[in-house]
Amino acid sequence: MRVSDHDRERTAQQLQRAFSEGRLNQLELEDRLEIALTAKTYADLLGLIDDLPVEQPQVNDVVELESKNGHLKRSGDWAVPRRLRVTSKYGSAELDLSEAVIAHQVVDIELDLTYGSAKIILPEGGVANIDAFHSDWGHVTTADVPSRPRPGAVHVVVTGRTKYGSLTVRYPRKRWFTH
C-alpha cells in the first residue's frame, strides 16, 4: 500500500523525537529521515522505527466522554487524546478520526456501552485492533481494516463492551463530486 505525506511526516516526527531523547545519533537520524521522507510504500518505512519504544499513554492524556442517553460525536478538526474512554447507557458514539489531529501513533479507545452502538472512522491508512472488544447481542464489524500495526500509521486499539449494541470500524466513505 502506498504511503501518504501524512504517514511520512508522522514517521519523521517519531524519528526526531527519538533523536531528541538520545536514542538515535545525528547520522542515524539523517539516514532514516532520508528514507522516511522519500518512502513510497509502507514496506519502505519498515525497520525505521521498529527498534524505537512505543509511546506509552500518560495520565493527563486521558479524556472521558459520558452520556446517559444522548449521541456522542467527535468529528472534523479535533485533538485525539492518547486514551479515550466513552461511556453511555442508552446512547451511541461516533468518533471520526479521518480529519482529526493525532499527535501519537497509538490511540486507545475504551467503550462502555450498555444499549448503544459505536462507529469509529479511521484516517486513510490507519489500522485498528478490536480483539478486546465484546458485544453480547450485537455485532462487531471492520470493513477491510487491517489490525496489525504499520510503520507510520495510526494504530487504534479498541477495548470494552456493549451488551445490546454494535461496533463498526471503517475508513471514510469516498466522495464523488460532479461538476
Results as ranks from 00 to 15, higher is better:
98 S>K: 08
98 S>Q: 00
99 E>F: 00
99 E>R: 10
99 E>M: 04
99 E>H: 09
100 A>I: 03
100 A>T: 06
101 V>S: 15
101 V>I: 14
102 I>N: 01
103 A>H: 03
103 A>S: 11
104 H>L: 01
104 H>D: 05
105 Q>S: 10
105 Q>N: 11
105 Q>E: 15
106 V>S: 04
107 V>G: 00
108 D>F: 10
109 I>S: 01
110 E>I: 08
112 D>Y: 10
112 D>M: 12
113 L>R: 06
113 L>K: 02
114 T>R: 12
115 Y>Q: 14
115 Y>S: 14
116 G>I: 04
116 G>Q: 10
117 S>P: 04
117 S>M: 06
118 A>Y: 06
119 K>N: 10
120 I>N: 03
120 I>P: 01
121 I>R: 08
121 I>N: 05
123 P>D: 07
124 E>M: 15
125 G>P: 08
125 G>A: 12
126 G>F: 07
126 G>R: 03
127 V>R: 11
128 A>F: 07
128 A>C: 15
131 D>I: 03
131 D>L: 09
131 D>R: 13
132 A>G: 06
132 A>E: 15
133 F>D: 05
134 H>K: 15
135 S>K: 04
135 S>C: 05
135 S>P: 06
135 S>T: 13
137 W>F: 15
137 W>A: 10
137 W>Q: 13
137 W>R: 14
137 W>I: 10
138 G>E: 13
138 G>W: 10
138 G>C: 03
